[in-house]
């Protein structure tokens, strides 16, 4: 099962390789990984999506907590959480294709962030499912390049 794990770490050199090395050394897989500083100076948040059965996910979480540079590890798939990923796509948009692509952009509430005579760069944000659906739709026009951020996620607020 897919899990989103959020890790609060000390923002110091080598932290990323401690986490990445833990995954590779113990044979866990990383599907996506995202790191950025938090509002607290000196702390960063890593968001990792990974796959595994219950026992493996438990090991991953415990091993991450064991790293001396880790403050907090949360399995966001357990809690009700909001997940988003951003993707940029360079799509072939010559001639008549262009109007069709722009209609899809509209439906998916994407943004066109760069235009040239024969291609468009589209920016889209959403959950994994939405991104996959968009890729599937645009594939027939020719996707030349894709860049993705990997998932980020936050726990939802209390609802009453």
């Amino acid at each position: 099962m897919r899990h989103i794990i959020s890790i609060l770490v000390e923002n110091e050199p080598g932290v990323l390789s401690r986490v990445a090395g833990l995954f590779s050394g113990r044979g866990f897989n990383i599907e996506t990984l995202n790191v950025a500083p938090t509002l607290t100076p000196g702390l960063s948040i890593m968001t990792i999506t990974t796959h595994g059965d219950e026992q493996i996910i438990e090991q991953i979480i415990k091993q991450l907590r064991k790293l001396v540079t880790t403050l907090k590890v949360v399995d966001l798939s357990e809690a009700s959480s909001v997940e988003r990923e951003m993707m940029l796509l360079r799509v072939d948009a010559e001639g008549t294709k262009r109007a069709e692509i722009l209609r899809i952009v509209d439906i998916f509430r994407c943004k066109v962030v760069d235009v040239s005579p024969d291609e468009l760069i589209i920016e889209v944000t959403g959950e994994q499912g939405k991104l996959t659906a968009l890729i599937n739709l645009l594939q027939r026009y020719g996707i030349k390049e894709v860049a993705r951020t990997g998932a980020v996620a936050l726990r939802r607020g209390m609802q009453g």
């Binding site: 050199p13 080598g14 401690r18 833990l22």
Partner: peptide, 14 residues
């Protein structure tokens, strides 16, 4: 050496 021993120390420092 910090890189080399990352996976066989409890922790390490440069």
């Amino acid at each position: 050496i910090v890189g080399i021993t990352r996976s066989c120390t409890k922790h390490n420092y440069l």
